[in-house]
Design a protein around this nucleic acid. Structure first.
Length: 779
DNA sequence: GCGCCCCCAATACCG
DNA sequence: ACCGGTATTGGGGGCGCG
């Protein structure tokens, strides 16, 4: 018997010699790559019953049931009896559960909808991207690409951090050679494949110097020799892995890159899995960053501050470039550069990814693709075990909207010295304060001593004051963990490795904390309870109203407010007084978040721009920060805002605006700045209207390009007659001379600029005419 | 046939 | 495949006008 300390990379399971065997893929504290086999968890599900003695005889007779035990568990906080039913053959679990659910005396089956590996993570003290200690015995298991294989004798135990894990990381970037439109693996071969490892290997496999078969062969060999723990790329879940697998097949090869010799495969959740390794797609990372409007690798690179060295290429140009030796050189350079960017972005991401994976208990490759709701849910599932809560099924419920937050009408104009006061984590703290939780909710009609419940304003939902609800406990753990991490951060050097880890940890905790309220109101949630979300926003509105009322009563001038914030004319003493009041009377923390030296409000809510004490300009909600306005309009609006905020003089902004507008009018703007990007949100045939971006998408599709929901299409408005949708072209096909500049002036730049200038009583006539040498020049 | 008004679908933002 | 609140644009229909 030996003791092994290991970091868990990934886990999967197999049916093997009559048992369901979980495979834990990890790295030991000695840097050995290992796999641990654990067959101790028998597949199971629960059946809830009111009359166990009535259900038991028939349960006994159900074929496939391999034992059961009666348990006291909870369902939405309500104690219930349930049999934990073991099933010897995992494949039969579904059908056995179905049979059992129909037995007389059954009040429903639970947890039959969880995968075996999920049960393993829930029931054992095991977390992905975390360290564990385990008692094992060495076994022989051929054909696995590991330094050691072990049988688990007693289930692993999570332990505190042992040391840094030194992952072996391989980045790759594939360039296909499309013949028409989007590249198709059945038709179009690979041009080149750039590979790079974090121990210094850099290679571009060129299908001109080698054959495509040799390129793929070499790639498989590199994976085999280097034996990476993580393989990372950009757009790999959606395209590259499937492409490589298919091209390999066409070339008579099998893309054996798994540590068990298997090919990559698509998992139940949509991402690509590679046995024993983590397949990461940084596209998913980019998707999580709202500041990146168009999710290209270049934009991700510039977001993280990485330098793009090779000239970006457009996919339609690849084939033509590949035909010449000079062009080919450029493609090769491009792929190598992109591969480097993938590796740099990986470095930026990995700490956060691991922390998130560990926190919510979803393996790293899957946590990246998982939507926020599922991350929260996974966290709650792990917490639910501490409560003896059964995990509810996802059941379809009708959508019923409910009231949300308050937004105040701003006072339009230019204001000076404005402080923004924010509630710290308002919704999570409200949920904790009033014990808002699925298991403390008292249904209408149930009689309870009014002293024992909190009653939400406006909506009247009731929640037991005691005991602590499941959400209260789950949120408390998050808030306390974050506070603890932030405390530790204070004493650390921001450059240190430990700081980076802990900072990533606190960011991960924050993301999950802030999503719990939204989760509770999501009809797809296992723990969906509309009254929970409804009560939370009701208390939120009440809290903000009371705060505003008090602020006014002490003479603070309120300029604006949204959900959990108020903007007031900064008066230090009064602000202090307000903070104390909120702490004492609401039990919540409000803090000055920012102070604007100057701030502009239009008539509209959720749109303003201000300059901070350090000179930074903040733009919120306006066209300048929207991805669906062309860059020219955004840039000119940004310029106007900047001048007004820095100088306080709208006049000067108007002058500058005239010049910039004249440039657009004269066509002195790069085409790139005229592209309008809009997302396609559904299959194209489902659109009921002829919108410009939809027409642009249709044109792309006609030319062999794939446009799927979630993709953004870039289009330009060209000269001609008819509706806009008659004059729209995908930007790739537009020549500068065809551009309809007057559209851009009238419908993009002027609206964006006037939005701001109207606040100062300018209208389009102030921008329209430019007096020059005594002459009127009209647009 | 044209301009005007209103409504609606669609998108992206804020917190 | 996280919530509700919000602003905005462009399409399209109905209406009056002559």
């Amino acid at each position: 018997m030996t003791e092994v300390r290991f970091y868990l990379l990934d886990l999967d399971y197999r049916f093997r010699s009559g048992k369901t065997e979980v495979r834990l893929w990890g790295i030991t504290d000695e840097g050995k790559r290992v796999v641990l086999f654990d067959s101790s968890l028998r597949p199971y599900f629960y059946v809830v019953t009111e009359k166990p003695e009535f259900l038991e005889p028939s349960l006994k007779d159900v074929p496939g049931v391999g034992g059961y035990e009666l348990k006291q568990v909870k369902l939405f906080g309500k104690p219930v009896n349930a049999f934990k039913v073991y099933v010897s053959n995992l494949d039969k679990l579904e059908s056995v559960a179905k049979t059992v659910s129909k037995l007389d005396g059954s009040s429903g089956v639970y947890e039959d909808d969880l995968r075996h590996s999920q049960h393993y993570l829930l029931d054992y003290d095991v977390r992905p991207c975390g360290w564990h200690v385990v008692e094992v015995e060495k076994v022989d298991r051929d054909g696995l690409k590991v330094d050691g294989a072990y049988k688990v004798l007693t289930p692993p135990k999570a332990i505190e951090h042992v040391g840094r894990v030194a992952f072996r990381v391989l980045a790759f970037y594939m360039v296909p050679l499309p013949s028409k439109g989007s590249p198709k693996p059945e038709r179009d071969r690979i041009a080149c494949l750039a590979v790079r490892t974090n121990d210094g290997l850099e290679k571009v496999l060129d299908s001109e110097r080698l054959s495509e078969r040799e390129v793929l062969q070499r790639f498989i060999e590199i994976v085999d020799e280097f034996d990476p723990d993580i393989i990372v790329g950009y757009g790999t879940n959606r395209r590259d892995w499937e492409y490589l697998v298919k091209r390999a097949k066409i070339n008579g090869l099998v893309l054996k890159v798994g540590r068990d010799g298997a090919e990559p495969h698509r998992s139940l959740y949509g991402h690509i899995s590679i046995a024993g390794r983590i397949a990461l797609d940084l596209y998913d990372y980019a998707e999580d960053i709202p500041d990146i409007k168009i999710k290209t690798l270049e934009n991700l690179a510039s977001y993280i501050g990485a330098e793009v060295k090779a000239e970006p290429l457009e996919e339609p140009d690849i084939a033509a470039l590949w035909a010449t030796s000079e062009g080919r050189r450029r493609v090769l350079e491009y792929s190598a550069d992109r591969c480097r960017l993938v590796m740099e972005a990986f470095e930026e991401f990995i700490e956060y990814g691991c922390q998130l994976s560990n926190l919510v208990c979803i393996p790293l490759d899957h946590v990246c693709t998982a939507a926020v709701g599922f991350r929260v849910e996974s966290y709650l599932m792990k917490c639910s075990r501490l409560f003896g809560e059964l995990i509810p099924k996802r059941v379809e419920k009708p959508y019923r909207p409910y009231a949300g937050a308050i937004v105040l009408n701003p006072k339009p104009g230019l204001h000076e010295n404005i402080a923004v006061l924010d509630f710290r984590s308002m919704y999570p703290n409200i949920m904790m304060k009033y014990n808002v939780s699925p298991d403390t909710y008292v249904e209408p009609g149930v009689e309870v001593d009014p002293e024992k419940v909190y009653v939400a304003p406006e909506v009247g939902h009731r929640f037991l004051k005691k005991p602590d609800g499941f959400y209260r406990e789950a949120l408390r753990r998050l808030l306390e963990a974050r506070a603890e991490v932030r405390q530790k951060l204070k004493g650390l050097n921001p450059e240190s490795a430990e700081y980076r880890v802990l900072d990533a940890r606190q960011r991960a905790i924050k993301v999950v904390t802030n999503a719990v309220y939204g989760y509770a109101g999501w009809i797809g949630a296992r723990w969906y309870r509309r009254p929970i979300a409804e009560a939370t926003t009701a208390w939120g509105r009440e809290t903000l109203r009371k705060t505003i009322e008090y602020a006014r009563s002490i003479g603070l001038d309120i300029i604006y407010g949204d959900t959990d914030s108020i903007f007031v004319r900064y008066d230090e003493d009064k602000v202090e007084k307000l903070i104390r009041y909120v702490a004492e009377h609401e039990g919540l923390e409000i803090k000055p978040d920012a102070i604007y030296v100057r701030i502009i409000f239009t008539e509209a809510k959720k749109r303003y721009a201000g300059i901070l004490t350090d000179g930074r300009v903040d733009i919120v909600g306006l066209e300048a920060v929207r991805g669906d306005w062309c860059e020219a309009a955004r840039r000119i609006q940004r310029e106007v805002i900047k001048i007004i905020l820095e100088t306080g003089s709208p006049d000067r902004a108007v002058e500058k605006a005239r010049d910039l507008i004249a440039e657009v009018k004269a066509g002195k703007v790069p085409l790139r700045e005229l592209v309008i990007w809009k997302a396609i949100t559904r299959p194209i045939e489902e659109y009921r209207v002829r919108a410009p971006h939809v027409e642009a998408a249709k044109r792309l599709i006609k030319m062999g390009w794939e446009v799927e929901p979630g993709d953004k299409v870039g289009f330009v408005i060209v000269r001609g007659s008819g509706k806009l949708y008659d004059r729209v072209q995908p930007y790739q096909f537009v020549k500068q001379e065809d551009v309809d500049y007057s559209y851009y002036v009238e419908n993009q730049v002027l609206p964006a600029v006037l939005r701001v200038l109207k606040v100062f009583d300018y209208d389009r006539s102030s921008l329209e005419t430019v007096r020059q040498k005594g002459q009127m020049r009209l647009f």
